[in-house]
Every structure is written in C-alpha cells, then in structure tokens.
Design a protein around this nucleic acid. Sequence first.
DNA 1: CGCTTGATTGATGCAAGTCAATTATGGTGG
DNA 2: CCACCATAATTGACTTGCATCAATCAAGCG
Lengths: 252, 252
Amino acid sequence: MTQARPLTPPRVPCDLCPLRRREGFRDFTGEELSFVSSFKFGELAADPGATIISEGERHPQLYTVLAGWGFRYKILEDGRRQILNYVLPGDLVGLQGNLMTEMLHSVESLTRMTLCIFERDRLTTLFRHHPSLAYDLTWIASREESMLDEHLLSIGRRTALERAAYLLAFLDHRARVTGAFGEEGPFILPLTQQHVADTLGLSLVHTNKTLRKLSDAGVLRWLDRGSEVLERARLLEIAGWQPTKEGQRPFI
Amino acid sequence: MTQARPLTPPRVPCDLCPLRRREGFRDFTGEELSFVSSFKFGELAADPGATIISEGERHPQLYTVLAGWGFRYKILEDGRRQILNYVLPGDLVGLQGNLMTEMLHSVESLTRMTLCIFERDRLTTLFRHHPSLAYDLTWIASREESMLDEHLLSIGRRTALERAAYLLAFLDHRARVTGAFGEEGPFILPLTQQHVADTLGLSLVHTNKTLRKLSDAGVLRWLDRGSEVLERARLLEIAGWQPTKEGQRPFI
DNA sequence: CGCTTGATTGATGCAAGTCAATTATGGTGG
DNA sequence: CCACCATAATTGACTTGCATCAATCAAGCG
C-alpha cells in the first residue's frame, strides 16, 4: 500500500483545468473561477493502489479528482471489505461522511490519479461568499446519495448476475459521460475481480463464475485486470437498470 | 396506501417548534429563525402507511419531519423492495436524490407523522442569504451519506444475524438521540418483520428466524408490530458496530 | 365471528460460500 | 534470456446460509 504524495509545484491553474474543457461539466463564472483558484491548495499524485484517505483519520483537506480512478470503502474488524462507490474525474473526495470530523471511510486509487487539494477550513468562506458553489456542493452530495441508493437496491435485492451487470453498466456509463476513458479509449474498466466481489458483496469465486456467464454470453470481455463492455444494451437489460441522463453537472 | 394530506391551518410557528426544545438539535439565531419561518409553507399530516413521496414524481416541496417515523425505499420492476433508510424527527425528506428533478425514491410513513413543508424554489434564496443554513444542508446531506455507507457495509458484508443486530441497534440509537421515543418511552421500534426483511435484503422467513435467535438470546423482545431492544451492549457486540456520538446537530 | 395482517415453523432446494488446486501473466534479478 | 515469484483468473468438489413453499397460529377489528 503506497502512499499518495503531494505534487510540488506542477500545479495547473484552474482556468486551464482539463476538466473544464470536457462536455458534461458546467462552466464557471469569472468570479467563481478566481475563488476556486485561491481555494486550491496544491495537487496530489497517487500511484495505483495508493491510500488517499484512511478511515478514522482527520483530513484537513478535500480533493477533486482530476484524472484516474479510485474507490471508497469500509472494512469490518475481521477484514471483510465493502466497496461503497467509485470515484472518477470531477468527483469530490472527502465530502462524504462528516464534514469536519474524522473520515468514516477510506479511499484508494485503482489507476494513477491526480487530485486537486482544497482546504476544508476555507469551506466557510465558500459558503459565505459563493452561494452558487455552495449550492453545487449540496448538489454533489445529493448526487452521491442517489448513487448509494442505487447500490443498496442492487446489493439488497438483485441476484448475483443482475448485480454484476448493473455494476459494469454503471461504471461504463459513468466513465463515458465523464470522459474517464480518454478520447479514443480503450474503454476498459480498471478493476480486478476482487474489486467487483467487494462491491457486490459476493465471494471472489462466485464473482468469477458470474462474470464468466456474462463473458460467455458475449456481453463483456474480461482482460487481465479489467473488463470491457461489449453489448451495452443487453447488459442494461440483464441488470434491469437505466442510467438517468444528466445534463451538465457542477464540480468544484 | 393512504395519501398524506395538508394540514390547514394548524401551523406551529417555527420559534415554538417542538424540535427546537430537544437537546441534540442546535439553536438558531434570530435571523435564521425568521427566514425559516418565511420558508415554511405549511404542514402535512400522514397516517401510518401513507405515501409521502413517490419515485418518478416531481416534488416542488421539501419536508422536515416534526414527529413520527417513516422510511425511504426503492422498488424493482417486479416488485422487489429495498428500504434505504429510515426518517425520524429532524430529518429532511426530499433532499436525497437530485435536488430539482424527479424523486428517485419513495417515502412512506410507519407511524402517524407530521411534516413541515418547504418550497424547493426558495432554496436559491437560502443559499444566497443564509450561508449558515446552506452549510447545514450540506452537513445533513453528508450525514445521510455516512448512514448509507454503513448500510452498504452491513448488507454487503455482514451475516444475517449481524445485520439484524446492526439495524435494530442503529434504529434504537437514532430514536434515542432524536427523542423519537418520547420522554418516557415505550422504547419500541415501530416496524413489522417485513420492513426488517426489506431493509436487510433477506426473505421474510429468514428474517423471522434470525430475529427469533435474537429474542431467544434475550437481546430483544418482538411485539406485535415492533421490537424493543433489551440488551443494548450485547446487540452492539453481535453487530460489531458502535454508534458515533454526535454533538448537537443542525436541522432546517 | 369471520377476515385480514403479522408472526411462526417445518420441509426442501438452490444460490452462494469455502476449500483447494491449477493456470495464466507480467515483472524482476541473476 | 530465462528461472522465479507474485498477482490475478479459473475450475471442480463440497458445504451451508438463505430462499421458497406451505401451513398454522395469534391478534385486532368491523
């Protein structure tokens, strides 16, 4: 378990932020932009498998993912792990759980990640002087909630096959709309089967057999440490799920 | 499935709000109080089993629970139901899911409930002129997230017995700190076993057998449509969970 | 007093867990 | 360039937790 390390100085100014270019993210006003620039504290780079946040610790910082994939998780005392959700570019990390106390979950990177660092202390200023950004923060928290709702429904009430189909469809969809795959692909979800198992609440062996069924049906292809969705429509049908189409979304 | 009905005129002014008296909830400044009073649109009363919010519909209102118990849920096309979380006095209903579009989940009452109605449109004003309340909103959303995180961990990785113990300990704890039991009790969680089953992602029969084990062990007592926790400590031990103690919490 | 809703219990079957190997695959140091 | 290793994926055999089916029991109620 590597540690994440701060990137000094390579610091993209916010008006050149690569996320800002992407469709799907809303534009800032000049005023918002200049505040966010001052809010920005630095950048963080993380190798695959690095711990970004760990449960129980106090984190005076918040992060926005600029590039790469990661996931949030919790573990029980005996080591059973549950992956709660995945974080992709544009997502705010560290808002979940209490706003100012110890973190209630951990975050780990799946691929190489870069994150933008913000200081929690300055949230007060944000709320006081930038209502539109404050609104965005609430919006972002609310969106995370609706994803967790879906996951709960899935783990609680879907069969193993449906769950697996849902997860891959969900991630594939999120990656496409955020541009996490890059321009031209490859469109590969960077997970191991262990991650899938820990997300679905299944054992590794059973996850393997379930994914095999999906592969055999030609709906997806499983690669060394990742998977590629081949037939989006059938995956959605198996899952019994439809992504809700969002317009432009905010990010901080 | 009854419908909830608006209460005309019985309208408690916010400065006399019964929640405000309870420990555990933070005080408002005079200014906050006067804004919230103007924000308040009316009250709603719901009999047990009434639908407060239904998935897919647009709700121009938000609600704060003043009294009573309810739950949020989602259902799959074939009727499988997953209860996502419970709502108790002081909780904000309708913030979860997207802020301004159709509701992504439903809410139903367990007991008789009264709710305070707010208009969503006026959120803009709240964000613009009342940063402290805006902060509270984000705090509330963030707290809901951390509960959902716990639930996910529970459903995904705990055994049936652990899950049941966790749920009852969780609800008992929340009811105590919010004063939902009333002053003197009785300290009874107003659930049927079907609700427990739909929360834990288990079948009704297996839920019954699991609860029986807890009853036989003397940890709780199951009544006609509800349960009473007898041995809090052992329940927590079985669940492998500890409630995080909160100080005063905000509410709108 | 029959009806409905909720709780309970036993019998049986299957989905998913556990155990235990085996087979890629890629990286690394000699 | 090639043994050697670590990580990931795969597979089969066996076990078990939980689901399903099918009754029965208890309590509140018009």
